[in-house]
Design a protein around this nucleic acid. Structure first.
Lengths: 346, 346
DNA sequence: CTGAAAGCGCTTACAG
DNA sequence: CTGAAAGCGCTTACAG
């Protein structure tokens, strides 16, 4: 634990017996350096535990090492989890995250994003849903030639690199989990129609039923809005049916929480009388009781990857045919907790 | 919208007819500058919309313009709200927030904080509860002479500037709100004993009862742990009493959510059969149904103030008697929603 | 109270 | 493939 000064690029250069320029080149991974020198430099970097001074780097280069993060509602655990991880990821790569909430008013938000770009000169921007589907915003970014990566976009998939998980598949598997437990009467609360994932999750549910030769009355399916209240309302309707389902799959955890309340109001015990599953594995999934069986979104990996893509600067030549490598579909995980159980004999 | 380059300190100096040093001094507010020149400089700054380049500043000075934020559990809305606001506040003041989660393992966390200090050379650190009560950590910071401000600390109030709200008073008023609605049989679920606010809130509840000449059987009061589950358990006990209360005051929203579940299990309608109030006004307060009557903590102001205190660097001379000005007790707000109502006639 | 000089630690051209 | 020079936009001494 020698409290010696932090090593500078010159120290590394001296130790490796090269110029500081060579060190710089090795670290930025840009120009070609002979393998011999590269090894020497890397060894010195390790020996001195060298980490470049971000401020000096930023001052000297025209890169800003700032990464923007645009989100809509900060109050969801999706956003705060993404943010927390993004912050960490940025620190590790020597960048800074500049997070900004986007207004519902499209015009105001356009202006604030423009200011963000001008003031901080971000290297790129990460767009969370539903911001990533704002056509006007996307156009503006394209026009200004700002790099951006979108998280779980709904459309225009060729516009930019994007990161998502397979909502359809997750939904399919979650539904099959209920089926395997013995449920055949399974209801569904559809998510907000303004987000594409709602369709995907709905479709996965339908296809899982069909592939298991299960048919379900149309009244088992209700439209929700991703809010607790909408889940409550939808579940109320479903549970008032004469031949009510033994399980309800809500397209996110908030609505599942609402469904839970509806069950309680109807004097139904979860999971004994009714199984409920959610989607996201946010804070709320373990805040309600019983804890929700749900799908864990790979938010950490999403954040890491988003930062990495922007940090690498690779996608500046997106124009060509290599768009494909910017489609990143990550793995999810099904989390089984206490809100599900095989249906009681009737 | 002239897309001209950003103004530099030289531009300001030229326009004001002074040296860049004078501009620097005016902006850093440090040395004495004649009023005449100060005005000239300020005018030029405004005219050119000058904003100092943080990287250059950081590189040249020995200040880092980094502010650390240490928290324990990122999954609470308290932390994510504070973080979001802190991020914004830092951006506005030209600082960067470096947020880090602290491990439960005190040794590991000490090491990681030390690394944070060495690598980023933070100007100061903001400590959220319960991290702000970690004696070993506080000692270490003192020893290394790192400035820090604590949010809602439990003890050692003279150790550093701190920011909090009047938990006692809020609790008192919240209890009185129930009393004014006609409740006299009011239960309480105490918060986690490892946090000082639990005591304050408990005390406020007790004193409100006493000042209204209401006495309550000891069984109306249960110990909780700030978790949903603990609230559920505590409420179950309270509600199983032969002469159960008509209202329950849980010391935070999570436990209030648990109490809500307990009410549902007991076939009790909230607020018709039972009123429930929480504390914090976090995400969960409006995620459960009915939405919780609760106390809103002034988190935004807390974050702003914390950043301001560290940014100002004022408290380096804390040693002397002016400790008093670093005690910041902010205002709260009582939010009345749908979980409370006057008790039914019996 | 004010300014000229030097330097913070990097990277961008510019040479070779 | 490699390096010497200049400069990014500020601030810290050092003078006066």
């Amino acid at each position: 634990m020698t409290a010696s000064k932090r090593a500078r690029i010159q120290d590394v250069a001296k130790m490796a017996g090269v110029s500081s320029m060579t060190v710089s080149r090795v670290l930025s991974n840009h120009a070609k350096v002979s393998d011999a020198k590269r090894t020497l430099v890397m060894d010195a970097v390790k020996a001195l535990n060298y980490r470049p001074n971000v401020s000096a780097r930023r001052l000297a280069s025209n890169k800003s090492f700032f990464i923007g993060l645009l989100y809509f509602d900060s109050d969801t655990s999706y956003v705060s989890k993404f943010l927390l991880r993004g912050l960490k990821s940025c620190r590790l790569t020597g960048h800074h995250l500049v997070a900004d909430e986007i207004d519902e008013d499209s015009e105001k938000s356009l202006a604030s994003v423009q200011e963000l770009i001008e003031v901080t000169k971000v290297d790129g921007i990460i767009l969370l849903p539903p911001v990533c589907n704002d056509t006007k915003l996307l156009e503006m970014l394209k026009e200004k030639n700002i790099s951006f990566v979108r998280i779980a976009p709904d459309s225009q998939f060729n516009l930019s690199p994007y990161i998502c998980m397979d909502d359809y598949q997750a939904s399919f598997e979650l539904t099959e989990l209920l089926i395997k437990q013995g449920h055949t009467k399974i209801g569904h609360i559809i998510g907000n129609p303004n987000q594409g994932v709602s369709r995907l999750r709905y479709q996965g549910y339908l296809d899982a039923l069909r592939s298991n030769k299960i048919s379900v009355p149309p009244e088992y399916i209700e439209q929700g809005l991703f809010t607790v209240d909408s889940g409550l309302m939808a579940a109320k309707k479903i549970l008032s049916l004469p031949n009510r389902p033994t399980a309800i799959f809500a397209a996110n955890d908030e609505m599942a929480a609402g469904a839970l309340s509806a069950a309680h109001m109807n004097r139904l015990s979860v999971p004994n009388d009714l199984s409920i599953v959610g989607f996201d594995d946010g804070h709320i999934a373990t805040a309600v009781s019983p804890n929700l069986t749900t799908v864990r979104q790979p938010i950490k990996q999403m954040a890491d990857l988003a930062v990495e893509i922007i940090a690498s600067g690779k996608f500046s030549d997106l124009s060509t045919s290599n768009t494909r490598e910017y489609r990143n579909v990550l793995d999810f995980e099904i989390i089984e907790r206490d809100s599900t159980k095989k249906p009681q004999e009737t």
